[in-house]
C-alpha cells in the first residue's frame, strides 16, 4: 500500500512537472523573444574596451543582471535516465539558455532605464548553486550573472 502511494506521488509529480514546466517554459521563451526585440537598440559589446579613452563618455558605471533558474521535475528525471546512455541533454541546454538570455536582458533593461548608450566588455558567469532537495536528488539549478560597463555618451 505504502509503495503504491509513493508511486502515485511520483507519477503525479512527473505529470505536474511536465504540464506546468512546459507551459512555463514556452511562455518564458515567448517573453524573452519580445523583450529582446524591445532592447535590440542597445549595443552590447564583448570587446575589452582597449582605447576606450577615446570614447567621449559622460558617465560610466557597472551594470549587473542575474537570474537563477531551475529544471522541472519531469525533465530532471528524464535527464537522470539519459545520463546512463550519455549524449546530448537537450533539456539542460534550454535551461541554461533561458538563464543566460534572461540575465542579459535584465542587464540591458537596467542600462536602458538610466539612459545608457552602450555596454562594454559584457561578461557572463554561470555557476550551479546546487541545492539538495529533500534527499540527495540534486536539483538542476543554475545561476547566471551578466555584467558589463555601461557608458553614457556626451551629448
Amino acid at each position: 500500500m505504502g509503495d503504491l502511494i509513493e508511486l502515485a506521488v511520483f507519477v503525479m509529480l512527473i505529470l505536474v512537472g511536465f504540464t506546468a514546466g512546459s507551459t512555463a517554459e514556452a511562455l518564458h521563451f515567448k517573453s524573452l523573444k519580445k523583450r529582446e526585440e524591445e532592447t535590440s537598440g542597445l549595443p552590447v559589446l564583448t570587446v575589452r574596451g582597449g582605447g576606450a579613452e577615446d570614447i567621449r563618455a559622460d558617465r560610466v558605471f557597472l551594470v549587473i543582471g542575474e537570474c537563477v533558474v531551475a529544471q522541472d521535475y519531469f525533465k530532471r528525471v528524464l535527464a537522470s535516465l539519459k545520463t546512463i546512455f550519455g549524449g546530448r541533454l537537450g533539456s539542460y541546454e534550454t535551461l541554461v539558455d533561458r538563464g543566460r538570455r534572461e540575465a542579459i536582458l535584465r542587464l540591458k533593461e537596467r542600462a536602458k532605464r538610466v539612459g545608457c548608450d552602450l555596454i562594454l566588455n559584457m561578461r557572463i558567469e554561470t555557476s550551479s548553486i546546487g541545492i539538495n532537495y529533500k534527499n540527495n536528488s540534486l536539483a538542476g539549478c543554475v545561476e547566471v550573472v551578466a555584467y558589463g560597463t555601461a557608458v553614457i555618451l556626451k551629448k
Binding site: 506546468a20 512555463a24 517554459e25 533558474v69 539549478c141 550573472v145
Partner: peptide, 19 residues
C-alpha cells in the same frame, strides 16, 4: 524553492538573495 523545483522556472527568492 523546493516547490518551484517541481515545476521549474526562475527561483525569484534565490535571484534576490544572490543580488
Amino acid at each position: 524553492a523546493g516547490l518551484k523545483n517541481i515545476i521549474g522556472g526562475e527561483l525569484k527568492g534565490y535571484t534576490e538573495l544572490m543580488k
